[in-house]
Design a protein around this nucleic acid. Structure first.
Length: 878
RNA sequence: GGGUUUAUAGCUCAGUUGGUUAGAGCGCUACGUUGACAUCGUAGAGGUCGAUGGUUCGAGUCCAUUUAAACCCACCA
């Protein structure tokens, strides 16, 4: 006697229990194994700043489905987990938390700050791991890593030193993006642009000789205090006379030169551009070309510095106001017009960033980009969907040097040491004891830390033990697929490829699977400020992790955004319930001893479902191999619901409830066989419920996680039987349709006479019981002519056969005629369509034979159907 | 300025290489407690696949133009 399954599946009690079982048994663990092919995924390490959100749920569901699939296929499948220290994001959080205690970074100092950061990491790092477990993520937790752990830190140091020694990392004064709020430099990728309403101020700069001079247009009048020139286009005749002369910078009353530079657009504004090399990237370039001085007028906190003269100490905003007022008073302000323009904002705190010149560390990205472009170009790395390679190329080919130093404390401290005596800079993995140049022992380390993406860029190999030469690195690297959202292609994917190529000389992964972002019901991005975020854990609590996972994979297309709907999760929950109950049905009947499917006496229905199962196995496998998770999940859903449950289970009932023990055993054996295979197909998507059901199956042992992936069985392909079954189902549906039209109550059963040709006679004779079960028949007679059928018997027609039922007294003549006319019109339409095609010479000549044959078949079928309908219409007319 | 995506049933979306009558979920209508499931079953209504033109024997699918929306990159001050 088997264990009895509860009537409904309760994910809330089962999931944690199952997950613990998996973890305890070590099923997630992977290790170098020469007997097997490796398959590797490294997780995009979640930030330790917060908690699991829908984006993670999607990302990690996809990865888990893939890794479970590959594991079952027999690969040594490693899903490498870990978390990201998220330098700036975490630091912002900790600073906020300290602010609530009334403390600042300065108050506590570096050491205490880092102590707090590490305890933050302990707490939130653990939290996010637990949340991943709730989702069912089959990560190899024994290998969990952290971007700031000892090994990853060594990888960072080595990479930094290597690149420095190759001249690919350098320190210099460059225009960078400065966040006055986070008080740190940012890379270009970390700046988000948003359109803002502002003004274009037109300001007159008089000529030094007292002439009219020229008028410049600017959106940032406060930066004029740092102007060191005005530029015009070299071929602009309007200002040709001024080039080489000086104009007077208002307010400061300082002469600055007019230079000619092609960067200026003659059509824009007045055709004159004020040049502020210290506070604008383009101006900086112009300044370099013309040897202009660089005057910074803004301090690191965004306030004006001593170079701003009387405006020193004001914030940029206050300064702007004051400058405009003064320009107005002195008559230098010519006009003010409303203007929309893009301003850069910090991707973490969304304050407006200030471009300014600062001494920072940079990576020569252009050089690193070359091999990184090449390996995508030649197909060593493939993007799925393919179109994302365009975005990648576009960015990589126009890449600018990457500012990697951050004026933060939480992160990898830059391994550069400065000699206080001779100024020598030493870059080394370990702090030098003395200056290699002058021997001084007065050295201090650079105060800054590295961009968080520097360490995550090393993730695919730092987690495998690099820079050590470990067995893991040899076996699992390059990894197989990297899965992430399109929003971090630049931040992360691009950097991993650059570092992989430069440090390993090898791609970090072969495939990049890109997905979209999860939006709310109205299609809005989920965000804290909108308060429209949906907590995956709440969804899991309500519907179970399987339902959430399935809802995130079904009905989506790779690379595109999706909306999150509660009702969709509910539908998936219903699906989990469906397969639960189907299993319950099978097991309720599994009392007798079970025979292997090879020994079963297969009837038509068995052969049909086995054929369909083969189709499903093939389709699902193909789809998963090519990362078409949506198609795979849809296929399983349809197979389970529409084929296995709606038809096959119903078809087995007559045998299960019948007297023939052999029939019963056979049906049960096929039921169990198909159920088992189906559960395995479903497992990557719904790991928990499949495991739970699997534990009830009589002929299985161990975990479904490690069960082999189903294979097609050639011996179970029965195409002719499947075709007959399809015809039978069509006829059953036609009968149900007629009965529904005539409002025949289900309790009213009728004798059905089936008329078919000689070829199908045996099949329908054998299928009689199906009509009793599925079509309200009380008995079935099969014949090849219409002998003995009452002239007013009601027919249900389909192409292969017709069924006649003595229900004449129920027929509403008008309704029946209308129904038949409609069917007639449909059949005629099909006939016309098919005939038109067959009369088209081009079609018959050029189309593949199979297509032409199919059309001929359809024509014949519809002609027969039409004939039957016409006969019936005629008999109605009498 | 450059690029990408989306437009298919009332709503949300699938539709892999062009090939019979374009699918699903939700919603809607009618019926139904048939010994797995009402988290269910049966039957049904509902679409000229954004528009125009083209390629082809054949186009939701390929090409061109176009309309609308979303996004990314660039940043002409």
């Amino acid at each position: 006697m088997l264990k009895e399954m509860p009537k409904t599946y309760d994910p809330s009690t089962a999931e944690d229990r199952i997950y613990q079982m998996w973890e305890k048994a070590g099923y997630f663990h992977a290790a170098p194994n020469p007997e097997k092919e490796p398959f590797t995924i490294v997780i995009p390490p979640p930030n330790i700043t917060g908690q699991l959100h829908m984006g993670h749920a999607l990302d990690d569901t996809i990865q888990d489905a893939i890794i479970r699939f590959k594991r079952m296929q027999g690969y040594e499948a490693l899903w490498m987990p870990g978390t990201d220290h998220a330098s700036i994001a975490t630091e912002v959080k900790i600073v906020d938390a300290m602010a609530k205690e009334g403390l600042t970074k300065k108050d506590v100092g570096r050491e205490e700050f880092l102590r707090r950061a590490w305890s933050w990491r302990e707490e939130y790092g653990r939290r996010i791991v637990n949340q991943l477990k709730k989702l069912g993520a089959s990560c190899d937790w024994e290998r969990e890593r952290f971007t700031m752990d000892e090994g990853c830190s060594r990888a960072v140091l080595k990479t930094f030193v290597d690149l420095y020694e190759k001249g690919l990392i350098y320190r210099g004064d460059r225009i960078i993006n400065w966040c006055p709020d986070c008080k740190t430099a940012l890379s270009d990728a970390e700046v988000e642009y948003e359109e803002q309403d502002s003004f274009l101020w037109h300001i007159r700069y008089r000529a030094e000789d007292g002439g009219e001079g020229l008028v410049v247009a600017t959106t940032r009048p406060e930066t004029m205090l740092g102007d060191t020139a005005v530029a015009v286009h070299p071929e602009d005749e309007r200002y040709a006379g001024l080039v080489g002369k000086n104009v007077i910078l208002p307010i400061l009353n300082k002469p600055i030169p007019v230079v000619a530079d092609e960067y200026v657009e003659r059509e824009f504004g007045t055709g004159c551009v004020k040049i502020t090399p210290a506070h604008d990237p383009n101006d900086f370039e112009v300044g370099l070309r013309h040897g202009l001085p660089v005057i910074r007028v803004m301090a690191d906190d965004g306030s004006m510095n001593e170079n701003a003269g009387k405006f020193a100490g004001l914030s940029a905003k206050e300064c702007r106001k004051a400058v405009v007022e003064e320009l107005e008073r002195t008559g230098a302000l010519v006009k003010t017009e409303p203007y929309k323009h893009n301003v850069g904002t910090c991707y973490r705190c969304h304050s407006v960033v200030e471009p300014l010149v600062s001494k920072q560390w940079f990576v020569n990205a252009r050089e690193l980009a070359k091999p990184a472009i090449e390996c995508v170009r030649d197909g060593r790395i493939k993007f799925v969907p393919e179109r994302f390679d365009k975005i990648y190329f576009n960015w990589m080919e126009n890449i600018r040097d990457w500012c990697i130093s951050r004026q933060l404390w939480w992160g990898h401290r830059i391994p550069a040491y400065y000699c206080e005596d001779c100024g020598e800079v030493t870059v080394a993995a370990e702090a030098p004891k003395a200056c290699p140049k002058c021997g001084s022992t007065h050295l201090h380390q650079d105060e800054d830390v590295l961009d968080t993406w520097f360490s995550s860029g090393l993730w695919p190999f730092s987690t495998m033990g690099w820079p050590d030469d470990t067995p893991e690195l040899k076996y699992f690297y390059p990894t197989s697929v990297l899965c992430t959202g399109y929003d971090i292609i630049f931040f992360w994917v691009a950097r991993m490829i650059m570092f992989g190529m430069s440090q390993m000389g090898e791609v970090p992964f072969h495939t990049v699977f890109i997905h979209g972002i999860v939006r709310d019901e109205q299609g809005r991005k989920m965000s804290k400020s909108l308060g429209n975020g949906i907590d995956p854990l709440k969804v899991i609590e309500k519907y179970g992790a399987d339902s959430l996972r399935f809802s995130l994979t079904m009905g989506t297309s790779a690379g595109n955004d999706m909306r999150f709907y509660d009702s969709k999760v509910e539908a998936c929950r219903n699906f989990a319930n469906k397969i639960w109950n189907a299993s319950r049905f099978v097991l309720m009947n599994a009392e007798s001893d079970i025979i292997p499917v090879e020994q079963a006496k297969l009837d038509a229905a068995d052969r049909w479902i086995l054929t369909r199962l083969n189709d499903a196995v093939r389709a699902v496998t193909d789809n998963l191999e090519s990362y078409e998770l949506s198609l795979a999940s849809q296929k399983i859903y349809d197979f389970v619901w529409s084929e296995f449950c709606d038809w096959y289970i119903e078809l087995t009932k007559t045998r299960l409830y019948g007297e023939d023990a052999e029939e019963k055993k056979s049906a049960l054996s096929v039921l169990l066989y198909v159920l088992d295979a189906t559960l395995r197909l479903l497992h990557p998507f719904m790991p928990f419920v499949t495991e739970e059901i699997y534990s009830y199956l009589p002929h299985t042992s161990g975990t479904i996680m490690r069960a082999p992936w189903p294979k097609e069985v050639p011996a179970f392909n029965f195409p002719e039987v499947a075709q007959n079954m399809d015809g039978m189902m069509e006829l059953v549906q036609s009968i149900r349709n007629v009965r529904a039209d005539l409002s025949v109550p289900p309790s009213r059963r009728t004798h059905i006479t089936i008329v078919t040709d000689e070829a199908h006679r045996a099949f329908y004779t054998g299928a009689g019981a199906y009509f009793n079960k599925l079509a309200g028949a009380s008995g079935v007679t099969v014949q090849t002519d219409k002998a003995g059928i009452a002239p007013d018997a009601v027919p249900a027609v389909c192409a292969a056969a017709q069924a006649y039922m003595p229900l004449a007294e129920l027929v509403d003549l008008e309704k029946e005629r209308a129904r038949l006319e409609k069917e007639k019109a449909a059949a005629e339409g099909e006939i016309a369509r098919a005939q038109a095609k067959l009369q088209n010479e081009g079609f018959v000549k050029k189309a593949p034979e199979k297509v032409v044959e199919d059309v001929r078949g359809a024509l014949l079928k519809n002609q027969e159907l039409l004939q039957k309908i016409n006969e019936r219409l005629e008999s109605l007319a009498k």
